[in-house]
Amino acid sequence: MSAPVLEISNLRKSFGDEVVLQNISFSVPVHTATVFIGASGSGKSTLLRCINLLDSVDDGVIKIDGEDITDPTIKSDQVRRKLGMVFQAFNLFPHMTVRKNITLAPIQVHGLSKDEANARADELLNRFGLMEKADQYPDRLSGGQQQRVAIIRSIALRPRLLLLDEITSALDPVLVNEVLSTVRDLKNDGMTMVLATHEMGFAKQVADEVCYLEAGQIVERGSAQQMIETPQDQRTIDFLKRVHEAGRL
C-alpha cells in the first residue's frame, strides 16, 4: 500500500492551561475515510483545525503525503491547497453568488481561467443537482443546499484530503440526508476524508475507521462495524448509549 495521505503521531494541543488534544496518532490511507466521534468539547474541531493549520500544535507531527506540515518554515497556503474543509456553519461568502463562491479559489489560488473555473463549477453543480441555484446568493438557499455548495466549493480545488467538521449539526433533520448522500457520493469517487460527526448511521456507511475521542484522547478505535455495534471500552459504550438515547443511531 502506498504512503498514507495523512499521518499524525503524538499530536498535542492546548489552549493556555487546558490540554485539548494529547497522544493523538492515526493515519488515513488514500481513498479511505476516518470518522471521529465524541461528545461536544472532546476536541474534534480542534483536531481538524490543526490539520488545516488554522490552529498551531504544541507537539507531535502531522504529515500530508509524507510532508511534515508542522515544520514552522512550511508555507501554510501551499498546504491548504491540498486540503478541503467544510465547517458546521457552512461559511459561504454571503456577498458572492453560488458560482462565484465555488470559482473564487480555483481562479485566485490555482490560476484557472474564469471559463475553466466556471466549467468545473457547473459540472459539479449539475452533478449534485444545484445547477438552478448557480446565480443565487447563499441567503436564498436552504441550509442543506448551502452546505452542499460548501462541499462543492471545497472539492472544486480537487483536494488530496477533505476535512468535514460536523457538517450536518446545524441542519434541520429533514435536510441532513441530502448532505450525507453528497458525502457518500464523494466517498464512492475515492475521496480521502476525515470527518467529525454525530450521525452514527452515516459513520457506519462511510467510515473505514472510527475513532472515539474523549477529553482530547483517542479512547478506542476500530472498524465502523466493530466500534458502533460491539464497542469494548466502557466510555465508548456509555457515549453511544447517550447518542442512542438522543435518537441519532
Binding site: F87, N91, F93
Partner: peptide, 11 residues
C-alpha cells in the same frame, strides 16, 4: 469564520 473559510480554501 469567514476568514477561516477563505484561508482553508488556500487564499
Amino acid at each position: 469564520s469567514q476568514r477561516a473559510a477563505a484561508r482553508s480554501l488556500g487564499l
